[in-house]
Simulated scan of single mutants.
Amino acid sequence: MNRWDESSPIRFLGGKVLLYILGVILFIGVNILVYTRISYLFTPLVVFIETVALPVILAVVAYYLLIPLISLLEKFGMRRIYSILLILSLVAGLITLLIFLLLPFLEKQFLSLAEELPQYVIQLVENVDAWFKNSIFSNYYNNMFQDVEGILSQLPNTMSTYASNTLDGITTFITTITDVIIAIVTLPFILFYLLKEGYKLPEMILRVFPPKVRPDLRHVFKGIDHQLSAYIQGQILVSVCIGIMMYIGFVIIGLDYALLLAAIASVTSVVPYLGPMIAITPALIIAIVTSPFMLVKLVIVWTIVQLLEGKFISPQIMGKSLHIHPVTIIFVLLTAGHLFGLLGIIVAIPGYAILKVVVGHLFVLFKRRYNRYALEDNQYEQSE
Rank of each mutant, 00 (worst) to 15 (best):
Q382P: 01
A348L: 08
A92S: 07
I70E: 01
I329T: 07
Q227G: 01
S89G: 01
I313W: 01
I346Q: 01
L322K: 03
Y257Q: 09
Y247G: 05
F331G: 05
Y40H: 12
V46H: 08
M246F: 14
F209W: 11
L155A: 11
T43N: 12
M78E: 05
Q119F: 15
I232M: 05
S239N: 03
S160P: 05
D168L: 14
V296K: 08
L58E: 03
I264A: 15
Y380V: 13
M204V: 10
G169C: 03
G310R: 06
L201P: 05
E107Q: 14
A163G: 11
I95E: 02
P282T: 03
V60H: 06
L339H: 05
Q119M: 04
Q154H: 12
Q109Y: 07
G223I: 05
A114C: 10
I10W: 06
S229G: 10
L375W: 11
I32L: 13
Y373D: 14
R369I: 10
I288K: 08
R207G: 07
M204P: 03
T176P: 02
P118R: 01
I170E: 06
G14T: 02
L113K: 04
A92H: 00
E309F: 04
F312W: 12
D179G: 11
I330V: 10
T175H: 12
R80A: 04
F312D: 11
C241I: 11
E115G: 10
W4L: 14
L54K: 13
L155S: 08
G150W: 07
